[in-house]
Nucleic acid binder design. Structure first.
Length: 905
RNA sequence: AGGCGCGUAGCUCAGGGGUAGAGCGCUACCUUGACACGGUAGAGGUCGGCGGUUCGAAACCGCCCGUGCCUACCA
């Protein structure tokens, strides 16, 4: 028999790669429109080409693969589109660092050569994460793998850009933007991370031009920017200062007079000194205040694109400028403070904690910087995107994220999409050297759209990497071509992603999808938690707390890792990853393996199951496990439908380990030990193999490898389905997903079985508590409350004897209690284990007293409850009845235990 | 500063108006013909605190305390 050759330990390594290759060869992952049916489509959140698989990816993609495999088995026309993201700034940085090792600076290479280098890098490392996803078992349609910068997607990017430009939804203008002086580019608002830092608040005196004895004190955290001040603002209602509005102050260290303005929005009466220096070119609030004033305040730029002090700031004293020019802002700060101190302008310095914006790619402090940039006017796009979620065309799971989405979308600001880097989609805009107009075109422009001149220069900026990501759900399906894929698979079914990119990505896909496809990009958004380390910290390389999923896979196997991640997928929480848990599920895989070995040891290789599962020969246990199986199928189905992955996982775990293995396999042994070909053996073999086979299919989306491996060992006629037979016995992944057969769910059977299990538990309990070794032979006597129970139990006597390891079992209404005896009480019966010569009776007394004490507590709780008139009157009738019955049951039980105790005295 | 979430067994976490749950860990016993990555039986919790609603609160509501995240124009 095959099973004899199988090891007792499941070895994932020998299984996983083999099956993955088979699946690939057989093209099971490939989707085709021509196959028809109902589409089910997911587009993968494209990992960065710089990326390595980390736990977050493993989590995200396991969940997607579960949905995809589930739906594929359920008969849907299922497509999972894979791909990668060029990740503009991130990738450029990586390649820059790479080149720096050889002392090469990208500027030495020049733009074209550098981009070539990035492509080389992409070619070499860009596919790394893809092969890692394959190890995870991801059943993506690899034939359709896309890259945000491949030809088709680049066309889509241009088409979108041009359309939005023509619609007036993309514009170019000089604005204050977030600038990363290290990456040397603009960033959008959400690419800035805020971190609290301890800083200082400097109080600086600005003398009034009229009267240098009167000095206005401003408080600032950034004294170096004072060289670019263009006003001082006070609150128009502030009694201290309101009369000064309209006068000027002499800006220290400069020869400049700047006005005192009133601005109730900029100035908070409570904060600092109540007077604010206004640096219109280097602070967002000041910029806005400058715009509000009439006339608008001038803007004096005093930092360059490296955040260094310019050498030509108007009206700055030459000796001051000589010192600070060219110095980075942070360094200049100290020098300016020193100068202010020397010259008597610094009043005081105090500690002050405030938050500082940092670049999300390199963590450098970002600088508000005035420069010409391209923007998407988001207002008109956001409106329909808000509506789509409001009216339920898109649903978030869990629901709570919708509010986060709404909050952001309702306060959305224009999106700065230009980046001053080289790696990315170059903006398809051309400046005419002759007439100065901009020509925007989907193809490379050769002549000015206005004057026809050929003196064109293409915009050197590239687009924000998230611009192309925003198009992902339709660009990957072929847009702007009207492909059949697009017609069939769009809108996609669900987007599975982490909470960290709701704004970056989810919101923008919704806006773009609605605008260009006139339909939502996906119907459901499943937002999962972020995986953190055991301390709840975000995993990052710099913290050294990264758990490498590939290492876990090597150690425990893919299925164990996947099951762990699935079990962790409770909604709306951070996930703290720990390796101990994986080990538990590795053991689970092994448990399944051994249960299957057991089943196969008891099946002839050419075994053919009975035509009817529930033949007249099916035992109580057989009927019971079928009832349980079908309940679990229902549970798993409904959990998956609601994205309650953890519920699906725990239902399966509970069922397989604690019902199928712990109870059913043990129950099945008496029947299986009967002679080959006998009816009871055949009936049990039928059920045993059916439940195993069905469970494997039920589990397959979560644990694809082990389920396939075992499934292939099952006799062919077991693999062939009874109902809805599609005749696919070649692979579990193309076999149908189990559907519950409600008629097999039978509460009566489950109740009967419970009685049997309770009896066994009562005897085992006595054994355990009395410390009776398993080798010691004991007998048990069950005194039943009525004849029917007795007959029922009599039929199951073999179960009880085997599982409770009894030498003898007597059942009856009239059974007398032997003299020295341990007693257990179950619903409707009493269980006696004669102890004569087996054990010291004081132990039994202790045990009984413990049990009586325990049950007395229960009785107290219930009798207090039931003697409460309000409870009896107001609680639902069913609750009261249930509790009354319980109380009665407890009382009977206690009485019996007390009798037993008395007899021992 | 606002928003969201969390606080349940030693640890990691489910659950959720009607007697507190799982995994790991712990204790005792067991190499029983599927599995020691195993089996059986146990120990262990006034469900963060205080109020309120209710016949009944760990669950619902308020406030507080801890903790995490997101958003933000705290000069």
């Amino acid at each position: 028999m095959v099973s004899k050759e199988l090891s007792k330990i499941y070895d994932p390594k020998s299984v996983e790669e083999r099956w993955y290759n088979v699946w690939l060869e057989k093209k099971y992952f490939h989707a085709s429109v021509d196959a028809g049916g109902t589409p089910y489509c997911i587009v993968i959140p494209p990992p960065n080409v710089t990326g390595q698989l980390h736990v977050g990816h493993a989590f995200d993609n396991t969940l997607q693969d579960i949905l995809i495999r589930w739906m594929r088995m359920s008969g849907r026309n299922t497509l999972w589109v894979p791909g990668t993201d060029h990740a503009g700034i991130a990738t450029q940085n990586v390649v820059e660092r790479h080149l720096a090792k050889n002392n090469i600076d990208r500027h030495q290479l020049g733009r074209e050569k550098f981009i070539e280098e990035v492509w080389k890098w992409k070619k070499e490392y860009g596919g790394r994460i893809i092969s890692q996803l394959k190890r995870l078992g991801a059943s993506c349609d690899w034939d359709r793998e896309r890259f945000t910068m491949d030809e088709g997607l680049s066309r889509a990017v241009r088409a979108v850009f041009v359309t939005l430009y023509e619609e007036g939804l993309i514009y170019r203008g000089e604005r204050l933007i977030n600038w990363c002086p290290r990456c040397h580019t603009a960033l959008s608002d959400i690419e800035v991370e805020h971190e609290d830092e301890k800083g200082k608040l400097y109080h600086i005196a600005y003398p009034l031009s009229d009267d240098h004895n009167v000095r206005l004190t401003v408080a600032t955290t950034r004294p170096e920017t004072m060289l670019g001040d263009t006003a001082v603002a006070v609150h128009p209602l502030d009694p201290r200062y309101k009369d000064l509005i309209g006068k000027t102050v002499d800006l220290p260290l400069t020869g400049r007079k700047i006005p005192i303005i009133g601005d109730s929005i900029l100035v908070d009466l409570e904060f600092g000194t109540g007077a604010v220096k206004v640096t219109t070119a280097h602070d967002f609030n000041d910029y806005d205040a400058g715009q509000r004033q009439t006339p608008n305040l001038p803007r004096i730029k005093m930092l360059d694109d490296k955040a260094a002090i310019l050498s030509d700031i108007p009206d700055v004293l030459p000796d001051v400028l000589r010192q600070v020019a060219g110095k980075p802002a942070k360094k200049a700060r100290g020098m300016i403070v020193e100068l202010l101190q020397e010259r008597g302008y610094l009043i005081k310095t105090e500690d002050h904690a405030h938050s500082i914006g940092k670049c999300y790619r390199c963590k450098s402090v970002v600088e508000p910087y005035l420069s010409p940039q391209w923007f998407v006017r988001t207002g008109p796009l956001a409106e329909p995107a808000i509506k789509a979620v409001e009216d339920g065309r898109i649903r978030f799971f869990p629901r709570g994220w919708e509010n986060t989405y709404f909050d952001w979308m309702r306060n959305i600001k224009d999106w700065c999409i230009s980046r001053q880097i080289w790696w990315g989609h170059r903006i398809p805009a051309w400046y005419c050297d002759d007439c100065g107009t901009i020509t925007v075109s989907p193809t490379d422009a050769t002549a000015c759209g206005n004057c026809g001149s050929k003196n064109l220069r293409q915009e050197t900026d590239v687009l924000d990497t998230w611009f192309s990501s925003a198009l992902w759900p339709f660009s990957t399906l072929g847009w702007p071509e009207k492909t059949k894929e697009l017609a069939f698979y769009y809108p996609t079914s669900v987007l599975v992603t982490g909470l960290d990119i709701i704004f970056f990505w989810v919101a923008r896909m919704i806006m773009m999808g609605l605008h260009f496809m006139n339909d939502v990009p996906f119907r459901h958004v499943y937002i999962h938690a972020l995986i953190r380390d055991a301390e709840g910290q975000k995993m990052s390389k710099s913290k050294g707390n990264v758990i490498d999923p590939l290492f876990m896979i090597d150690q425990y196997g893919t299925d164990a890792v996947r099951f762990t991640l699935t079990a962790f997928a409770a909604q709306g929480r951070d996930i703290k990853m720990s390796t101990e848990r994986i080990e538990g599920y590795r053991n689970f895989a092994n448990k399944i393996w051994n249960a299957s070995r057991f089943a196969m040891m008891n099946l002839e290789p050419d075994f053919a199951p009975n035509a009817e599962l529930m033949s007249k020969d099916a035992s109580l246990a057989d009927r019971w496990i079928l009832s349980r199986l079908n309940s679990v199928i229902k549970e798993v189905q409904s959990a998956l439908a609601d994205y309650r992955f953890n519920d699906a996982a725990s239902a399966l775990y509970q069922f397989i380990w604690h019902e199928y293995c712990d109870w059913y396999l043990e129950f099945s042994k008496p029947a299986l030990n009967q002679e080959e070909g006998s009816a009871p053996r055949k009936a049990t073999q039928t059920v045993l193999s059916h439940v195993l086979e069905t469970t494997l299919r039920l589990l397959h989306p979560i644990m694809p490898f082990i389920t396939e491996e075992i499934w292939q060992y099952l006799p062919e006629r077991v693999r062939r389905q009874r109902r809805g037979d599609r005749g696919r016995t070649e692979s579990i992944m193309v076999s149908p997903y189990p559907a519950a057969n409600e008629t097999m769910i039978n509460p009566g059977i489950e109740q009967d079985m419970q009685m049997v299990m309770d009896t066994i538990l009562a005897i085992r309990n006595i054994r355990g508590e009395m410390n009776i070794a398993p080798s010691v032979q004991i007998a048990a006597i069950v005194k039943v409350g009525n004849k029917e129970l007795g007959e029922h139990l009599e039929k199951s006597a073999e179960y009880v004897k085997t599982l409770a390891r009894l030498q003898e079992l007597r059942i009856g209404v009239a059974e007398a209690k032997p003299k020295t005896t341990a007693t257990g009480v179950i619903k409707g019966a009493e269980v006696y284990v004669p102890l004569e010569g087996i054990i010291d009776l004081t132990q039994e007394r202790d045990r009984l007293m413990k049990e009586i004490a325990k049950i007395s507590e229960d009785i107290d709780i219930f009798s207090r409850k039931l003697s409460n008139k309000d409870f009896v009157d107001k609680a639902p009738k069913a609750v009261v009845e249930k509790d009354t019955a319980k109380l009665e049951e407890f009382r009977v039980k206690r009485e019996k235990l007390e009798q037993s105790l008395k007899m021992l005295r």
